[in-house]
Design a protein around this nucleic acid. Structure first.
Length: 585
RNA sequence: GCGCCCGUAGCUCAGCUGGAUAGAGCGUCGCCCUCCGGAGGCGAAGGUCAGGGGUUCGAAUCCCUUCGGGCGCGCCA
């Protein structure tokens, strides 16, 4: 419809150009057709007269009049008018408005699906929490946002792979593996003080038990031997970092090849837990990418490529990446004097690997606390010669949980995490998914747990789901009364849907594909929530004022057709969000 | 100190590639069940879009600046 209107305006402009009133015959790119917010402004509005007023040396309203006079007449537009400072408002015919119903019913779950001119093969990375313990609520918003954004982009017609980067290399993992081993030693009967900097979680003794079951006492060494030459821990007046590092070294030395046993048990069981947790949350990945798999070949190769390109230099025995050449605030060490790679080296290899796998576009969904990381990753991409625009970041601000008006305390330092699983159990997966994404991701948000649990219209998710369930019940009722929905008759009588509320719903249904397109283009999942709430509100309002199950079969089926279309669109929108569309509640 | 995000109704937030009278929910105050699910609907009150400058036909939206709030600035991962 918008394209048809633009084409018509284009013709009118060409006519005015021939008459010498305009010095251009082109439609300016800043001219746009928009859906009106207010029905009293018609269905569509165009700003072209205001944009061209200066060039035409004519007041906008006068220019608008002249343009309207030259518009080719069509059956689809029943009225055109000049309004406000010079808008041209278009009123579409009732037939055009109701034609959305058969369109929705025919396209079904594909209604709203986008067909971009050039679909992007895109990698979306999110969560990527270190596998050192269960996910907690701090990861929840990233998980919900990443998953819904992926699904939105996919629905908008892009080819999306969701990816989880597993940080299974590095010191944190060594601390975890060593922690498990120490718990194992305790389970074997060794007596010593558990290090303050080791992982304290109560999931560790369980892993130690399974290590004991599988390998008996094979990995046992006496506490005396293990702690020989280990400097004091912090509570004893020493240094906690030095203490744990010495224990890691002792573990590697004493266990040799067996070092990987406690390490792998820890990694596998935690990863399995995360995977299950996310799966239950409706968050699924195409790829779980292991950081360790980058070492050493891919890291060597990536570093060699940047070295050859002249982006590396040596200083103080360290190898540095000249990231400040690409807008980063300072250069970064890639390889220490000791010969070991930094975490940044993995990042370099990882980005290169993503592009090597054929992705045209990389989207990183980060927690806002990682924003300092953005210039670094951009610098890597640029150094490899990739266009900046192919690397994109979505920063997700923190959500603060509130219960009974009180902020729910959660400090990473005290280790008092609320597990994501606990939140899901408390309020349900649907509410958690909806509430995490209902606000713009760059907006720090308050998450009201009590509201999320409420089963009333106060709760926007409930309100939308209820609209869907209500329609399902009406359609069922119709059947029970021997008035099963007759689609053919309904579609033949859509002309009977003439009330303001019906017009409002029709307009909302027609807007769905555009709303999906703009939400995906702007990476704004929350707009899908807003849209669904608006549609649900229109529906509830209509439901309250008009009965569908009436004797008049023509009108009844026309209304049922509109309902069925609304039901379909509600379901499609909820599906994008990863929220269920219940048939009864 | 430097960088990123934010500041819109009592509260939580939409609206931001500049467009018409700045919207919604909650809360407050009224009203509506002989009814397809009241788990709902209708209405009222409520605003210096943090302050100040600028850009222009037009600014909540863009630019500058001040003031507030959040977060980040390791050879950690």
């Amino acid at each position: 419809m918008k394209d048809a209107l633009l084409a018509a305006l284009q013709k009118a402009i060409a006519v005015l150009h021939e008459q010498g009133l305009l010095d251009t015959d082109a439609l300016p790119s800043s001219a746009q057709i928009t859906r009106t917010r207010d029905a009293s402004h018609g269905d569509f509005a165009c700003n072209v007269a205001m944009v061209l007023a200066k060039a035409a040396k004519m007041p906008p309203r006068q220019l608008a009049e002249k343009l309207i006079a030259e518009l080719p007449s069509t059956a689809e537009i029943v009225r055109t008018e000049v309004a406000g400072p010079g808008f041209i408002n278009f009123y579409v015919s009732h037939d055009v408005a109701t034609s959305i119903v058969p369109t929705v019913l025919t396209q079904g779950e594909d209604f709203g699906r986008g067909k971009p001119d050039k679909p992007l093969r895109m990698n979306v990375e999110f969560v990527s929490a270190n596998p050192t313990g269960p996910l907690h609520v701090g990861h929840g918003r990233g998980a919900a946002s990443g998953a819904s954004l992926s699904s939105l982009l996919r629905f908008a017609g892009h080819e999306i792979d969701a990816e989880y980067y597993v940080n299974d290399a590095g010191r944190q993992m060594d601390i975890l593996g060593t922690s498990v081993w120490l718990r194992y030693l305790q389970a074997c009967g060794e007596v010593f003080t558990f290090p303050s900097n080791a992982y304290q979680g109560d999931y560790l003794p369980e892993m130690a038990e399974s290590l004991l079951r599988e390998h008996g006492q094979a990995l046992r060494h006496s506490a005396e031997v293990v702690f020989a030459d280990v400097p004091a821990d912090a509570p004893q007046g020493g240094d906690k970092e030095a203490h744990i590092d010495a224990l890691i070294a002792a573990a590697k030395r004493l266990l040799q090849d067996d070092y990987r046993l406690p390490f792998n048990i820890a990694l596998e069981s935690i990863l399995a837990d995360i995977r299950q947790d996310l799966g239950e949350f409706g968050v699924h990945y195409q790829t779980w990418f292991s950081e360790a798999s980058l070492h050493p070949e891919k890291v060597d190769a990536a570093v060699a490529e940047l070295t050859a390109a002249g982006h590396m230099y040596e200083k103080d025995g360290n190898v540095w990446f000249r990231s400040s050449d690409f807008g980063d605030e300072k250069d970064r060490v890639v390889r220490r004097a000791s010969g070991s790679y930094t975490y940044f080296a993995s990042d370099i290899a990882y980005l290169r690997d993503k592009f090597a796998r054929g992705y045209e576009h990389l989207l990183y969904v980060f927690g806002a606390d990682h924003h300092g990381y953005v210039p670094r990753v951009r610098a890597i991409a640029e150094a490899f010669g990739y266009d900046q625009e192919r690397v994109e970041f979505c920063l997700v601000q923190f959500a603060v949980l509130y219960r009974q008006g009180e902020k729910v305390q959660m400090s990473t330092r005290s280790g008092e995490f609320i597990p994501l699983r606990e939140l899901r159990n408390e309020i349900g997966n649907d509410a958690a998914r909806w509430f995490y994404v209902m606000r713009s991701t760059d907006q720090h948000m308050d998450f009201d747990l009590d509201l999320a649990k409420k089963q009333s219209s106060d709760n926007p998710m409930y309100y939308v789901q209820y609209a869907h369930a209500r329609i399902c019940r009406v359609l069922e009722q119709a059947q029970e009364r021997g008035w099963a929905f007759d689609r053919e008759q309904g579609e033949a009588n859509l002309g009977l849907l003439t009330s303001e509320m019906e017009a409002e719903i029709l307009t909302a249904l027609a807007a769905f594909p555009e709303r999906i397109e703009s939400a995906s283009r702007q990476r704004e999942v929350h707009n899908v929530c807003n849209y669904l709430r608006e549609l649900a509100a229109s529906y509830h309002s209509w439901y309250n004022s008009e009965k569908a199950l009436i004797e008049d079969a023509a009108l009844r089926n026309a209304r049922l057709a509109l309902m069925a279309a609304a039901q379909q669109v509600l379901a499609n929108g909820l599906r994008v969000l990863g929220v269920s569309a219940p048939t009864q509640m």
